[in-house]
Simulated assay, not measured.
Amino acid sequence: MPATRPPADRADGARLAALLQAGEIDAAIDAGLMGFVDDDPALDPAARAVVVQARERLRQAWAARDRYRARAARLARRAAEREARRNPAPAASAGPAPALPPAAAAALARARARAGGKP
């Protein structure tokens, strides 16, 4: 009877335990620590405990990091809303303002007409 091997996408518990005991957490994550399924009867109970505990600690740490990031984003959004209430944006004008008032424009036109008549 041939020995059954775990599928390629599943992590090897003994390898993960060895990596964790050597302090190679990053290598264990790369080797599939988070995808480890605790159903290998051949795995030593002590090694199983090491892998499962490391996986749960990592899962809790990642969840805490996500909560921290969500809180920081929420606080930044609230601060921006508070600042917007304190300093409202200036009102936009309805259209471009004329360059000169009508009386000044008329005076300028008369001056140009007089100056244009002289060579």
Rank of each mutant, 00 (worst) to 15 (best):
R57S: 10
D26T: 09
A3D: 13
A11M: 14
A106C: 00
A111C: 00
A17L: 12
L20D: 06
R77N: 08
P98Q: 05
W62C: 03
P102I: 01
A79M: 11
I29E: 15
R86Q: 11
L16N: 10
A92Y: 03
P102G: 02
G32A: 09
D26M: 04
D66I: 01
A61Y: 07
A94S: 10
G23C: 08
A104R: 10
A103E: 13
R86E: 11
A46I: 11
A97C: 01
A27I: 02
A106K: 06
A61K: 10
A104T: 02
R114N: 01
R85A: 15
R48Y: 04
M1R: 11
G13Y: 11
A80D: 14
D26H: 07
L108S: 02
A54C: 06
R86G: 01
Q21G: 07
L108T: 00
E56L: 10
P2W: 07
R10Q: 15
R57F: 09
Y68L: 12
A106S: 05
A11T: 14
A91K: 09
A92T: 11
P101A: 10
A47K: 10
A91N: 05
A17M: 13
R86P: 00
A113H: 03
L100I: 00
R71S: 13
A104N: 04
E83W: 09
R48W: 05
A49F: 04
A111S: 02
A42I: 03
P6G: 11
S93H: 04
Q21A: 15
R77T: 08
P41L: 07
Y68G: 04
D12S: 14
R55T: 02
M34G: 07
A104F: 02
G32V: 05
R86I: 02
P6M: 12
D44S: 12
Y68Q: 12
A97F: 03
P7L: 15
R15E: 15
E83S: 13
Y68T: 08
A105Y: 01
L20G: 05
A91F: 02
L16P: 05
Y68V: 04
A113R: 06
P41D: 10
Q21E: 13
A109P: 00
G35Y: 03
L19E: 12
A106P: 00
R78Q: 14
A105Q: 09
R110E: 09
A94I: 02
A31P: 04
P7M: 13
M34Q: 12
R69E: 15
L33E: 03
R86H: 05
R82C: 05
G32Q: 08
A84I: 03
A105I: 00
A49G: 06
G117Y: 02
R69S: 07
G32F: 06
G23P: 05
A79G: 04
W62T: 05
L75W: 06
D9Q: 13
R86K: 10
G13R: 11
